[in-house]
Computed example of a mutant assay.
Amino acid sequence: MFDVDWMGLLTREVLRERGAALIAESCAWAVGLSDQPHHERRAGRLVATGLTVGERAAHGRPLAGEEDGRLELGDARPGSFQDALNMLGADGRVQAERFDDEVLVPFVADTCRLAAERARTSRRAAWEELADDLGEDPRDLLDVVRAGGWEAPLRIDAEHLVLAALGTVPLIEVEAEGLPLSLVRAAEATARAAAAPEPAPVPDDSLAGALFLARAALEESGCTVPVRPEEADLLLVALGDNGLEPDEVTAVLPHLPVEEATISRIAATLAAR
């Protein structure tokens, strides 16, 4: 029986070090909950109560119902962050499930990764022995972490940490604390979406034969890959020698490792014929 306890202790140590960051992420996640319509389950049906979550909290009424929610989140102070975690969303899910998926799971995974990096650096021999016991490559940190099973118990520790800090705090105060970071996260998401590359074009099934010939022609042509503009004529000759018609050349070029300038030059050559 191998001993992995030292690694479990290290993950908890790193979690404690990152406690402030976890609280900040939790506050940022909560931003906007008060503005959402409040729902509850009546006679087994999910219905809107006609108030927003914030309005219901302001009236001192519980956000979570008795039919749903997690037992460990019960007996929460009405309108508190813990109460909000235990309430239902418009999709019928308890908000705590969303919090797990969107905050705790990724945060704990990152914490375990950081702990693994520290272990590999500061306790190299022990780390390699541990990876060997788990049947994993010590260079593959995430595989070792998954095999070690440290994430599940650490998520429980992370949840306890959040509830100890924010559980009894009114939701509106948690949201106010998290607003600056939530704006940063929203800006980051917008930037990622703007920078996302366009998906590569998917070849039409009808081009399968022409694409096969084109790839063979490219390989036989001796052109560098991706094909530069100065080799456009060489590639065009090779494609023609392999039996591709001009319209087929135009159709297959976007699916070959060819620079955009090369495609433009070949298109201009074909248009001039």
Rank of each mutant, 00 (worst) to 15 (best):
W6E: 11
W6S: 12
W6N: 08
M7H: 13
M7I: 13
M7C: 07
G8C: 08
V14M: 01
R16V: 02
G19A: 14
I23D: 06
E25A: 14
S26P: 06
A28H: 04
A28L: 09
A30K: 01
Q36M: 08
R42N: 03
R42H: 09
A43N: 15
R45S: 12
A48R: 13
V53R: 08
E55K: 06
R56P: 12
A57Q: 10
R61K: 14
G65F: 08
G65S: 10
E66R: 13
D68K: 07
G69K: 03
G69P: 04
R70W: 15
P78K: 05
M87R: 11
M87F: 07
E102I: 09
A109W: 02
D110S: 13
R113L: 15
L114F: 06
E117T: 04
E117Y: 04
A119F: 07
A119Q: 00
R124L: 08
L130D: 01
A131I: 01
A131R: 00
D133K: 11
G135Y: 11
G135A: 10
G135S: 11
E136G: 08
R139H: 13
D140I: 09
D143Q: 13
W150Y: 09
P153H: 04
D157A: 15
E159K: 12
L161S: 04
G167W: 10
T168W: 13
V174P: 03
E177V: 09
A186K: 14
T190R: 11
E198T: 09
P199E: 01
P201L: 02
A208D: 15
A208T: 15
F212E: 15
A214N: 06
A217I: 07
C223N: 08
V227E: 05
L236W: 06
A238H: 03
D241S: 13
L244M: 10
T250H: 01
T250E: 08
L256K: 02
P257V: 06
P257F: 09
E259Y: 09
A267R: 14
A271F: 05
A272G: 05
